[in-house]
Design a protein around this nucleic acid. Structure first.
Lengths: 310, 310
DNA sequence: ATATTATGATAAGTTTTATTTATATAATTT
DNA sequence: AAATTATATAAATAAAACTTATCATAATAT
């Protein structure tokens, strides 16, 4: 069994086709046929069911592909080990970002980052916190940006910034006349929330828990985007809470409906997180420096009250 | 980079000597020299410091060896994947056992197991629960026998048996006259305990917590073996608690000092535990069947009160 | 039904790589 | 200084991986 053979298996499994897989792996089709046959012979089991059209994995084949992914993944990390020692900033870098951070933070640093570190091939994925934790542990991500603290023993966190919550309160709302709002003003039943799975939603719920005791756990109106929440709020369906950076992007007219919290405002902690193995730490360091520098210009709150995302 | 090259690196790192490593890997010394040089060239970094005598790993070399272990380990698991599919019961099987189970349980099943499954190469290690959890997660163990429940999300547990605690009470002790003892009789300050790190110790402490509230956390007398605890108890230093299977091994004279708990007796849960990956499940199954069968003949308590080890 | 196309297997030959044998070199011990 | 021990290097060989060319088979089109 060789790493090369395993890569061939993965290619064929992915493309369900020897010829295409051969192109992708830059060898000829007979090479794949022979090497995969050789591996099947060595393991004494069939990986592919060639009677199916297109070709399919056998039951064991699926498990073999899984294990092959582990091996190939680990083998690719060897270069990271060396890169880290050399202080080389380059190579693939897989970054996960939670949805409520992605659209505001990414434009702030992406251009500068790729310009400053042209040898880094960024692969950015929008993922839920749950998915991020899982993928970090499985080695499918090198780092991620998420709301913290997460209290995951296998994951390290480095705080990038604290992002205050800001109330978005339509004219019709009972709190509309207030210049500033307080945590104790909030009523969970009257706040429009993102749909389940967003940790910003969980943060808001925790924030409300902090003021009044938890109410019922049933919310009628939910959405996947803050834009929708703002629109819904104008339908008289309640107020909503936005992360501070998002408030910089909304229209001037909408800006008038923003109500800030009395200081110290409740805020979420946003961190770059990565596995304890600390592979690609140089890239993580570089990204940390750049993002925290950029955000320091945009967020000028001194003191905040951190709301846990979990 | 090939798996073979990595195995060569591991061999040289282990033996600190190319010639010996060559023998162990069944190739000639120049093969090792050349292949390792080739790998060093590919990674463009020195793995070994050949100026040192005996040869030493460089700083990166140590990290490379670590990663190489991961890769080689994962690659060896490929055969397990196939074996499992075929229902083949054989190959290396690394089993960890906690010290307070090892001497009583091992003789009960080892002979039968090796006779029934001659193709399995058992490698048994005596380890603390903590070490077991770590090694299971790292893939250095295939399974282990420990007191449960452990509440480790990455580890599965299958209960083998419930083993009651039995009091060992010397003639001089205040409880000596009682035919049966109760949990409420126990006083943690007067029970001789195994030294720190044994989960049986933790079980006993939890048991006492269950009766009276926790007392001070300071114990004067501790030992690594039940034999010593029994001897110490005769010095008037207190009573002790033994796991039931251990009481079958002590002398007839000492048997007279045993005092059983009123039913349902407190007991520890002993399980075979293994990673969720479920590799070598067939061997684990086989071992589970055999042990639970053997123990069923030795422990005849119907109902017990489980004491947690953590 | 026949031709065409797509796809994977096989055969033969070539290139590349891994390994061995033999030998050189450097460091250490006697 | 000679002997010993340990690794590196060189040349030759064995093994493997890969390519080109061709075949077999099944699905699709004419």
């Amino acid at each position: 069994m060789t790493i090369t053979q395993l890569k061939y298996v993965l290619a064929v499994a992915e493309h369900q086709n020897f010829t295409k897989a051969a192109e992708k792996t830059f060898v000829t089709q007979p090479t794949l046929s022979m090497q995969i046959q050789k591996l099947e012979e060595e393991l004494d089991i069939l990986i592919f069911d060639r009677s199916k059209k297109p070709i399919e994995l056998t039951a064991v084949g699926k498990k073999i592909v899984n294990q092959a992914k582990n091996i190939v993944n680990e083998s690719e990390r060897m270069q990271d080990v060396v890169d880290q020692e050399k202080g080389f900033i380059g190579g693939d870098f897989k970054l996960g970002i939670i949805p409520t951070v992605m659209p505001t933070l990414l434009p702030m640093f992406l251009k500068t980052f790729t310009a400053r570190y042209p040898k880094v091939h960024l692969k950015i994925e929008e993922l839920s916190t749950e998915e991020i934790i899982h993928k970090l542990q499985e080695g499918h991500l090198d780092a991620a940006i998420a709301a913290t603290p997460l209290q995951q023993p296998s994951i390290k966190e480095r705080v990038l910034y604290y992002e205050p919550f800001v109330g978005y309160i339509p004219e019709s709302h009972r709190l509309s006349q207030k210049k500033q709002i307080e945590t104790s003003d909030l009523d969970i039943d009257d706040i429009l929330l993102l749909e389940d799975g967003h940790c910003f939603r969980d943060g808001v719920i925790n924030l409300c828990r902090a003021s009044k005791m938890a109410k019922n756990d049933h919310f009628q109106l939910e959405s996947g985007s803050f834009e929708t929440l703002i629109k819904l709020s104008h339908e008289g369906l309640g107020m909503t809470l936005l992360p501070y950076l998002h408030t910089l992007d909304i229209s001037e007219k909408q800006q008038k409906n923003l109500r800030y919290f009395q200081e110290p405002p409740p805020a979420r902690e946003v961190s770059i997180i990565y596995p304890k193995s600390e592979l690609k730490l140089h890239i993580i360091d570089a990204m940390y420096q750049l993002i925290s520098g950029v955000v320091r210009g945009a967020i000028r709150f001194q003191d905040v009250k951190i709301i846990s995302p979990v």
